[in-house]
């Protein structure tokens, strides 16, 4: 018995089903990669998993050793600077591309029936990726990490009803310390990756089952639906994109290696402290509102985003001839951008 026939017998694969699965017709607009931005966060997630598992080999989740272990990775371990750099940059690109992907889905109204549930899974994934980022930079245990943990757990503590329990659960006690770091580590390397993988699987399954939205541009409304096969056409485009992004990640890690600030000092908040850029809008919002609104505001935003397909349907019924969703999206995106720029430029 040849190896191939033994393998086919031991691991039976339906060739026809496989061919059908990989030859899914893709709408023509996806030939342009910026219409297919959902793939980018997915690749970045894979890069995160691979580099993350590598970092686990050296990282020590102990407040007395965490910072030194990251320093050791960055300065002593062979290619440690590269692995850490790629991990950090891929996290940033993952969140940036996720935001662009969500904006594309929002403004093309691709969340509409029957894709409401998939949009909701997408919003959950977006929140999980933000938590990934938060728990990730907390593990470094530098000044920014420590105070991000402090502020983050206090924000959680201000959540209506479950706040005090949530803060205690996240901190693992009254103060930021060993229990907090262990819990953040467990979330970052175990709980969140498993939950994300399951949600990504469901997200992709729903995309395949429901199909990609067929977008028609000006002048194409009456034309027949044009498609191209997933394999090898779309796969090739994606492969080219992955190669370019991989190269870009290495260049970014090389030219802009991740900074390592001063070690965590629980008795001194640095005068100039800021979280990662994707939290800038919330950080600015917290400065200009009181604590209650500071916490409720972002929550309302996320709940609205989560239920957006149904909110949109409500507006559609209320104002059938006006594109309310578009203008709400424009105002929302502009507000977030203004807050982002404001916090970027502000000294305090």
């Amino acid at each position: 018995m040849s190896l191939t026939s033994w393998l086919k017998k031991s691991f039976p694969v339906d060739d026809e089903a496989l061919a059908e699965m990989s030859s899914e017709p893709i709408p023509n607009h996806l030939k342009k990669w910026w219409w297919a931005l959902g793939g980018t966060p997915a690749y970045m997630f894979v890069v995160q998993l691979v580099t993350g598992f590598m970092l686990i080999f050296y990282y020590v989740p102990d407040p007395n050793q965490a910072y030194e272990s990251v320093q050791h990775i960055s300065e002593s371990v062979s290619f440690g600077w590269l692995i850490r750099g790629v991990h950090r940059w891929s996290a940033n690109i993952m969140i940036a591309s996720l935001i662009l992907h969500m904006m594309r889905v929002f403004f093309t109204k691709s969340y509409r029936a029957p894709r409401e549930l998939n949009w909701m899974f997408g919003v959950i994934l977006f929140v999980i990726m933000l938590v990934f980022g938060f728990t990730g930079y907390s593990l470094v245990y530098e000044q920014m990490s420590y105070w991000a943990m402090q502020v983050g757990t206090e924000i959680a503590g201000a959540t209506p009803l479950i706040g005090p329990w949530l803060a205690d659960f996240l901190k693992g006690g009254d103060m930021i310390g060993q229990n907090t770091l262990t819990r953040f580590y467990a979330f970052h390397v175990m709980i969140l990756p498993v939950v994300s993988m399951m949600l990504i699987a469901v997200h992709v399954y729903l995309i395949r089952t429901l199909g990609v939205t067929d977008l028609r541009f000006k002048g194409e409304e009456k034309k027949d639906k044009k498609t191209f096969p997933f394999w090898p056409d779309h796969a090739t485009t994606e492969f080219v994109m992955v190669s370019i992004i991989m190269l870009m990640l290495v260049i970014l890690a090389l030219v802009f290696p991740p900074h390592l600030g001063a070690p965590a000092d629980p008795n001194n908040t640095p005068l100039h402290i800021k979280p990662e850029w994707y939290f800038y809008p919330v950080f600015r919002w917290l400065k200009i509102t009181n604590l209650t609104w500071g916490v409720i505001g972002p929550m309302v935003f996320l709940v609205l985003l989560f239920f957006w397909p149904f909110v949109d349907r409500f507006f559609e019924k209320l104002f059938p001839k006006k594109d309310v969703a578009f203008w709400i999206g424009v105002i929302g995106a502009l507000t977030i951008t203004i807050f982002l720029v404001w916090e970027t430029l502000a000294a305090h």
């Binding site: 502020v151 206090e154 924000i155 001194n268 402290i273 604590l291």
Partner: peptide
Amino acid sequence: HLGCKVHWEADKNIFFCPCH
């Protein structure tokens, strides 16, 4: 507010929290 450490600013005679 959210548990950061305030700084004493002697020239302004105030405690200032750099977080928010």
